[in-house]
């Protein structure tokens, strides 16, 4: 099942093309990473999905239907640049935002209480927004995004400004929502978070999609046959000469193989050397490495 499908989406600002024929699909219930360097066109894509902007051409389908304004009530968006009315109180502010998403006053109140309770911040209800710290208002932002129980959540840098404890809390909430079959678009620069959280990613640069796929599959696709062997004992001289050694340290060596070789070949070599192999693993590229390489190439 596809939650969201972008087909040949183009958006131009004057002569500048912010989104150049971008197509990808987001399956239901997955956590989807939308990645790209600054100015790559991520925000433009998100704004088109949230109906803030309209594509010049191409189509966006939401749950199989052509995306239109009524769908915005089924989307929760937490922008990277976010803010709240400083003079309002936490409770009334959340109720206001929930009502703008189509909830009735009673529903809004109920949801606000539920979420304040859930994130253990019930006593903030009557606090003014301006009294909150950055991390605190971040939590309120998160609640505002999920209050109306959206099917699709768009989180742009949701962890920025959060301390490790609150980061953990939000991450748990994200995972919990994912278990509830919510689809989540996750946009960030922090690649270690992407690997930790996302199932699929799409990488954009200069308005174009340059990479798309499942994280596991991508790591396989971009692997470079690198292996690390840790061992005890002495290798005889010249053994490593035939290999492409990337780095070597006391009792450990990183080797790159050509395509036709196999991890077992390397292991065999070490076993024949009569040294004790303590660890043997393939080094897969991190998403960060893939990201940098792809951006540089594009």
């Amino acid at each position: 099942m596809t939650q969201l499908s972008l087909q040949h989406v183009i958006k131009r600002y004057g002569s500048y093309t912010a989104s150049d024929d971008v197509s990808f699909e987001i399956p239901k219930g997955k956590i989807f990473g939308l990645l790209g360097p600054n100015g790559a066109g991520k925000t433009t894509l998100i704004r088109m999905i949230t109906r803030i902007l309209y594509p010049d051409s191409g189509t966006i389908l939401f749950d199989g239907e052509l995306l239109c304004d009524k769908h915005t009530e089924r989307i929760g968006y937490m922008p990277e640049e976010r803010g709240l009315y400083k003079k309002m109180k936490v409770g009334e502010h959340l109720i206001y935002l929930a009502r703008l998403k189509g909830l009735s006053l009673a529903e809004a109140k109920e949801k606000v209480n539920y979420w304040l309770n859930r994130l253990e911040v019930t006593d903030w209800y009557l606090k003014h927004i301006e009294e909150l710290s950055k991390g605190m208002s971040q939590k309120i932002q998160f609640i505002a995004t999920v209050l109306h129980d959206p099917e699709l959540l768009i989180l742009d840098e949701p962890f920025s400004g959060l301390d490790p404890i609150n980061s953990k809390l939000i991450e748990e909430e994200i995972n919990r929502l994912s278990e509830q079959e919510k689809t989540i678009i996750f946009s960030t620069h922090r690649m270690e978070q992407v690997e930790e959280i996302c199932d699929d990613i799409v990488l954009v640069n200069k308005g174009r999609k340059i990479l798309e796929g499942e994280i596991k599959e991508l790591k396989q696709r971009f692997k470079e046959n690198k292996f690390r062997v840790s061992y005890r004992g002495e290798l005889s001289d010249g053994v490593l000469d035939k290999l492409h050694v990337l780095s070597q340290a006391e009792g450990s060596v990183v080797v790159q193989f050509s395509e036709e070789h196999h991890g077992n070949d390397l292991l065999k070599l070490f076993i024949e050397q009569e040294v004790e192999v303590t660890a043997f693993n393939e080094i897969l590229p991190s998403i960060n490495e893939i990201f940098i390489r792809q951006v540089e190439q594009s």
């Binding site: 949230t50 109906r51 803030i52 304004d69 915005t72 009530e73 989307i75 968006y77 937490m78 922008p79 640049e81 976010r82 803010g83 709240l84 009315y85 400083k86 935002l97 703008l100 998403k101 932002q141 505002a144």
Partner: peptide, 17 residues
């Protein structure tokens, strides 16, 4: 100007026109 400066517009525009 206030809405623009404190970025609440980003949140609002995804809910209302």
């Amino acid at each position: 100007m206030e809405e623009k400066t404190n970025r609440i517009v980003e949140v609002l525009t995804s809910s209302v026109k």
